[in-house]
C-alpha cells in the first residue's frame, strides 16, 4: 500500500492505518487485538491512553523478520549453552507522537470507516481476479464496479475503442439479499446489471483500476476470503478480508483488515 503508515495504539487494539488522514488514495485499516500481537501490553498516555505515530513499514518489517530468525537461533543456542540467553534489540525509528487533535481525527476516521455496506459479496479467487486485473491495465484506467443483491460482481472497463468486462455470478451474499430474477440466465452481463440497477437491487461505482489492483495486493496477507461491497450513497468500495483461526473455518475476530477505495465519480446510482 505504501511504506509509511500510522500505528495507532489504544488500550485494547493496535491499528496500522494507511491514508486515513490525507484522504485521497486507497485507505486500509488493519486492526489487531492486543493479545494477538503482544504477550504483555501496557499503555498510558494523557490522551485517554491512546498513542499514534507514523512508522516506516519497510524498516519495521525488516526488524521483525530479523527478530524471527534471531529467535530461532536463540532457541538452539540456549539449549546448547545451558540457560544462557541473549537479547537483540533493534530500534525502528518512528515520528513524534501525533498531537491530541490528530489522534482524535484518526479515531473519528476509524469510526467513520467502520460503516459497512448493506450488501457484501464474497469475491472470486483472488489470484484469478488479480491476473485478470493485471491484463486490464493494458486496456484502460477507469473501472466500473457493480454489485447486486443476488451475488453478481461485475467489473467493466470502458474507453473510446472498447468495452471490456468480467461478471462473476452466484457469489455468496452477506447482508441485504434479493432473489435472482428468473429468466435472466441468458442475459448479457450488461443487461443484467442495467436491470438490477433499475430495480434498485444493485449499486455501481467508478474507480481507478490502479486503486483496485492495489487493494488486491492484500492477498499477500494470505486472507481466507475477501468480501466486496459498496457503501450506501455509493461513496466508496469496501473490501473486507477474512482470516480464519488456523486449522478451523471460524473467523479470527482478533484480526481485521479492510480497504476503502475512493470513488472517482458518484456513479450512476
Amino acid at each position: 500500500m505504501g511504506r509509511i503508515c500510522h500505528l495507532f495504539l489504544t488500550k485494547d487494539h493496535a491499528f496500522f492505518l494507511h491514508n486515513l488522514l490525507n484522504g485521497d488514495g486507497v485507505q486500509s485499516i488493519a486492526q489487531f487485538r492486543k493479545e494477538s500481537l503482544f504477550e504483555d501490553y501496557r499503555i498510558s498516555s494523557q490522551n485517554d491512553d491512546r498513542i499514534a505515530f507514523t512508522i516506516d513499514l519497510g524498516l519495521l518489517h525488516r526488524a521483525l523478520r530479523s527478530s524471527v530468525s534471531v529467535c530461532g537461533h536463540v532457541t538452539t543456542a540456549t539449549n546448547r549453552l545451558q540457560g544462557y540467553k541473549s537479547a537483540v534489540i533493534q530500534d525502528v525509528p518512528i515520528s513524534k507522537p501525533l498531537s491530541r487533535v490528530d489522534v482524535v481525527e484518526l479515531q473519528s476516521a476509524i469510526d467513520m470507516a467502520q460503516d459497512l455496506p448493506q450488501t457484501l459479496v464474497q469475491g472470486p479467487d483472488l489470484h484469478q481476479l488479480q491476473s485478470f486485473v493485471d491484463r486490464l491495465k493494458h486496456v484502460g484506467e477507469l473501472l466500473h464496479i457493480t454489485i447486486t443483491q443476488y451475488g453478481d460482481l461485475h467489473l467493466q472497463l470502458l474507453n473510446t475503442l472498447t468495452t471490456l468486462g468480467v461478471e462473476f455470478r452466484k457469489l455468496p451474499v452477506v447482508g441485504v439479499q434479493a432473489h435472482v430474477p428468473t429468466g435472466d440466465q441468458n442475459m448479457t452481463a450488461q443487461s443484467r446489471t442495467k436491470y438490477a440497477m433499475e430495480k434498485g437491487e444493485a449499486l455501481s461505482v467508478q474507480l481507478s483500476l490502479k486503486h483496485f489492483a492495489k487493494s488486491l495486493q492484500c492477498h499477500l496477507t494470505k486472507p481466507d476470503s475477501a468480501f466486496y461491497g459498496i457503501t450506501p450513497l455509493a461513496s466508496c468500495l469496501t473490501v473486507i478480508f477474512q482470516f480464519f483461526i488456523p486449522g478451523t473455518r471460524q473467523t479470527d475476530k482478533s484480526i481485521s483488515l479492510h480497504c476503502r477505495l475512493p470513488v472517482l465519480d458518484p456513479g450512476s446510482a
Partner: peptide
C-alpha cells in the same frame, strides 16, 4: 467476444 467456459464467470469485450 465472450468467454464460454463457465456460466458463473463471464468475460466479455466489445471492440469498436
Amino acid at each position: 467476444l465472450k468467454s464460454v467456459d463457465s456460466t458463473d464467470a463471464c468475460i466479455y469485450a466489445e471492440i469498436r
